[in-house]
Design a protein around this nucleic acid. Structure first.
Lengths: 237, 237
DNA sequence: GTCTATATAGGGATAGAC
DNA sequence: GTCTATCCCTATATAGAC
C-alpha cells in the first residue's frame, strides 16, 4: 500500500476522514486501548507526525468518532419517534439501533476504560444513556396507560431500563461469548437478529391478548435456526 | 496447598494476601488497566521488587483474584441449587450473586480489556457465562414445563439469557450512570436492590396468576423510595 | 500537509545486595 | 522475603526539514 502522499492537490482534508475511518476499523477490531496512534497512522498510510497534525491528541479521534456515533444513533431514534404509534414497527427500530451500535461497537466494548480516560466522553455517554432510558420509559408508560401493557408504572420503568441495558450490552456479551484467539468476534448478522429477539422477549410478556401473539410471531422470525451457533452462513439479513 | 516454606517468622505468606487485597481494592476503585504494579506495591506497603517475588506477572494477580471471585460466586449459586424448588427464595439468590459481583466489580467492568490481555481469563469467564446461562435456562425451562411460567421453550431460554445479561452488566451500567469526577461510583446498597428489582422484573410478567402477584409484592419491596436517586440512606439490606 | 527523527514518560519486569 | 536500582520496551506527543 502506501499510495503515498497523494497530498497537496485536492482533498479538502480527506486525510482527516481517512484517519477516522482507519481508527474506527482498528478500534472495533482490537479495542481502542490496544490501538496506538502508530497503528492508526500505518493503517491510514500516513506518518505518525502527520496524524498529530490532524489530531493533537488520541482523545480527539475518539471524541470525533463518538460524534459520528451519536449522530447516527439519533438519526435512527428520531426517525422512530414518528412511527412510534405503530408498535409493530418496534422491531425495526431496535434492529437499526443495533446496527449503529455494531458499527461503533468499540465504544460500548471499552466504555469503562474510555470513560475513565476521557471524562468528556463519559459525560456525553451518560447523557445519552439517560436520554435513552427516559425516551423508552415514556414510551412504555404510554403503552401501559393505554392498556396495551400490563404493568405498573414501576414495572414499566424497569422494563424500559432493561431494554436500554440489553440494547447497550448485548453485542458486548456476544463478542465475549464468541471470541476466540486474537481479535474479538467479527460482525455477525445473526448476532443482531438474536439481539432483537432478546429485546422483544423483554416486552412480549407484558403485552395483552392479540398483541402479545402478534409480537410472539414477529419475535420468532428473529430466532436463528437452532444450530450450535458456530458459524452458520448468514441468511437474508 | 503450598504450606511451603512459610516465610521466615510468622505469616504463612500473608504478604501474598496483602497484595491481593490491595489489588482488589485498587482495581475496583480505578479499573485494573489503570493500576500499575507500582501502585499495588505502594498500597500493600512493599517494594515493587517484592511484589514480583510473589507474582511473576500482573496477570497472575488478576487470575488469582478471578479465582477468588469464581469460588465466591459458585458458593452462592451452589447453595441456591438446593433451595431452587422454592421460587420465592429466588430474590435472595440474586441478591447474594450481586453482592459477590459487587465485591469483584472490576472484573465485569474491564472485561473486554482483561479478556484481550489475558486469554486465560477470557476462557474462564466464557465458561462461567455459559454455565450460568445453562443453569438459568434449565431452571426456567423446568418452570415452564411445570406450568408456572407462561413461555415457549425459546422464550424461556431468552429469559434466562436476559437474566444473565442483566446480572452481569447491571452494576456496570449503574457505575457509569452515577460516576462523577475521579474514581467510579462507590459501593451502594441501593444499587444492588435496584438490580434485584430489575431481574425480578424480567421474570414476573411470565409468571401466572397468584405467583405473579406474589412476585410483584416481593419485587416492590426492592424498589427504593422514588427520590431522585441521589443518596437515600440504605434501608434494611 | 507531510515526512523523519526524537523527546518524554511510564509501565512491566529483573538483578543482585541484604 | 524484602529491598534498591535499573533494564527494556512501547506509547503519546513534538520539532523541524521538505
Amino acid at each position: 500500500m502506501v499510495a503515498m502522499r497523494t497530498a497537496s492537490p485536492r482533498s479538502p482534508s480527506r486525510t482527516r476522514e481517512r484517519i477516522l475511518d482507519a481508527s474506527l476499523a482498528l478500534f472495533n477490531e482490537s479495542g481502542a486501548p490496544n490501538i496506538t496512534t502508530n497503528h492508526i497512522a500505518d493503517a491510514a498510510g500516513i506518518s505518525p507526525g502527520n496524524l498529530y497534525y490532524h489530531f493533537r491528541h488520541k482523545e480527539d479521534i475518539v471524541m470525533a468518532l463518538y460524534g459520528r456515533y451519536e449522530t447516527a444513533l439519533n438519526g435512527v431514534l428520531d426517525s422512530g419517534q414518528d412511527a412510534q404509534d405503530a408498535v409493530s414497527d418496534l422491531w425495526l427500530l431496535v434492529h437499526l439501533a443495533f446496527e449503529v451500535i455494531q458499527d461503533f461497537r468499540f465504544i460500548h466494548r471499552d466504555l469503562s476504560d474510555l470513560s475513565a480516560a476521557y471524562p468528556a466522553l463519559r459525560a456525553r455517554f451518560q447523557r445519552s444513556v439517560e436520554a435513552g432510558i427516559a425516551r423508552t420509559s415514556a414510551y412504555c408508560l404510554a403503552l401501559a396507560r393505554a392498556g396495551a401493557l400490563d404493568a405498573s408504572p414501576e414495572e414499566a420503568h424497569a422494563l424500559a431500563t432493561n431494554i436500554s441495558l440489553v440494547t447497550t450490552y448485548w453485542l458486548n456479551l456476544q463478542a465475549l461469548r464468541h471470541a476466540s484467539r486474537g481479535g474479538l468476534a467479527p460482525p455477525d448478522d445473526d448476532t443482531i437478529s438474536e439481539g432483537v429477539f432478546q429485546v422483544l422477549s423483554l416486552i412480549t410478556p407484558y403485552l395483552r391478548g392479540a398483541m402479545r401473539e402478534d409480537f410472539r410471531r414477529i419475535a420468532l422470525r428473529y430466532l436463528p435456526p437452532p444450530s450450535d451457533r458456530g458459524d452458520c452462513s448468514k441468511p437474508t439479513a
